[in-house]
Amino acid sequence: MASELNINITIDVLESEEELTAQEKEALQVAQEAANDAYAPYSNFLVGASLLLEDGSIFRGSNQENAAYPSGLCAERTALFGMSAQYPNKKIKLLAVTARRLSEEKFLPAMPCGACRQVMSEYEHKQQEAIPVILQGPEGTFYRCHSVSDLLPLQFTKDHL
């Protein structure tokens, strides 16, 4: 007989920037700056990500497109892979993601794709500590996830290999 698995996920919906902590604001600002530096000549969709590290430093990444699809890379993975290559043992305390269209100044909702969610979960599993995620939401709102597992509840990890 079938049984049910109930998964309860709580994501805070923040109505304005004033509800963000100082660290969340700073991480989002760095993510917005990173989005402005994205290389997105094909989609014109600029995405930025930032990682607040345990020492207080912030590492950033932006989406990088390529004419030879799918050779580009999303902002989240650019930030995570670059950070891990340079600081393999530092823990991530917060990840922020934001996006905008090249033709517009306002920032749009920014939700990580499935591949990015999988990579994010790998780093959360690696550090054995939750990584909170701040996402740009619609109409000036923000989403606060307390863990990557809020975005990818049934994770595939090295333990499944």
Results as ranks from 00 to 15, higher is better:
Glu15Leu: 14
Glu17Ser: 15
Thr21Val: 13
Thr21Asp: 11
Thr21Met: 12
Gln23Glu: 15
Gln23Gly: 04
Gln23Met: 10
Gln23Thr: 13
Glu24Gln: 15
Glu24Cys: 11
Lys25Val: 05
Lys25Trp: 06
Lys25Gln: 13
Lys25Cys: 09
Glu26Pro: 00
Glu26Met: 05
Glu26His: 10
Glu26Asn: 12
Glu26Val: 04
Ala27Glu: 04
Leu28Ile: 11
Gln29Thr: 07
Ala31His: 02
Gln32Asn: 04
Glu33Met: 02
Glu33Ser: 03
Ala34Gln: 03
Ala34Arg: 03
Ala35Tyr: 00
Ala35Leu: 02
Ala35Pro: 07
Asn36Lys: 06
Asp37Cys: 01
Ala40Asp: 07
Ala40Gly: 10
Ala40Glu: 04
Ala40Tyr: 00
Pro41Asp: 10
Asn44His: 11
Asn44Ala: 09
Leu46Met: 10
Gly48Asp: 01
Gly48His: 02
Ser50Ala: 15
Ser50Gly: 04
Leu53Arg: 06
Leu53Asn: 07
Glu54Ser: 12
Glu54Cys: 01
Asp55Ser: 06
Gly56Arg: 01
Ser57Ala: 06
Phe59Ser: 01
Arg60Phe: 05
Arg60Gly: 00
Gly61Thr: 04
Gly61Tyr: 03
Gly61Glu: 06
Gln64Asn: 10
Gln64Lys: 09
Gln64Cys: 02
Glu65Asn: 12
Asn66Arg: 12
Ala67Lys: 12
Ala68Pro: 02
Tyr69Ile: 14
Ser71Leu: 14
Leu73Tyr: 06
Leu73Gln: 15
Cys74Thr: 10
Cys74Asn: 14
Cys74Phe: 12
Ala75Cys: 08
Glu76Tyr: 10
Glu76Gln: 13
Thr78Pro: 01
Leu80Phe: 13
Phe81Ile: 15
Phe81Pro: 05
Gly82Thr: 13
Met83Trp: 09
Met83Arg: 07
Ser84His: 14
Ala85Arg: 15
Gln86Ala: 12
Tyr87His: 15
Tyr87Leu: 10
Tyr87Gly: 02
Tyr87Trp: 08
Tyr87Asp: 08
Pro88Ala: 08
Asn89Pro: 01
Asn89Asp: 14
Lys90Gly: 02
Lys90Met: 10
Lys91Leu: 03
Lys91Asp: 11
Lys91Cys: 01
Ile92Gln: 03
Leu95Asp: 08
Leu95Ala: 13
